[in-house]
Design a protein around this nucleic acid. Structure first.
Length: 124
DNA sequence: CTTCTGACGAAAT
DNA sequence: CATTTCGCCAGAA
């Protein structure tokens, strides 16, 4: 749908990230035309009112966390999800990277499989 | 109305 | 590895 704000679309995708997996701001943005990674960050910053939103599963492309005021809470939540960190306190996308949204989401958003594969190929 | 300021990212330097 | 540039939203002052 195109009637919802980009923030709602961001939340919809983030809620699809399963326990034990992580996505980057850029990954979410690449699935939403017109939305940049920075905008995804803005959306997350304003997500305090969004219930059931696994915000901790969204990290930057370097596998690090960008939360101001400390990353302790996020790290704890990730560990609880079963996601372990690297020596340098980073999350390995190679191991925990999200595989993308559901088939339903792709169809509802008119995203062809071929295009999705291309987008996915550019992910960390 | 204008200005400032962030949960980003890729490329260039 | 550290900086800089640019893309260009939303809320506060």
């Amino acid at each position: 749908m195109t009637t919802s704000t980009y923030q709602e679309q961001v939340y919809t995708l983030v809620k699809m990230i399963p326990r034990g997996e992580v996505a980057s701001y850029g990954m979410i943005a690449s699935l939403l035309p017109g939305v940049t990674a920075r905008m995804v960050g803005y959306a997350m910053a304003a997500s305090v009112n969004e219930p059931d939103l696994p915000w901790h599963r969204v990290i930057n492309s370097q596998g690090k966390m960008s939360i101001p005021g400390g990353t302790e809470r996020q790290v704890a939540k990730l560990l609880d999800d079963g996601v372990s960190l690297t020596k340098s306190n980073r999350v390995s996308f190679k191991i925990y990277r999200w595989n993308g949204p559901s088939q339903d989401w792709l169809e509802q958003n008119s995203v062809e499989i071929a295009d999705f594969m291309t987008i996915k190929a550019g992910w960390p």
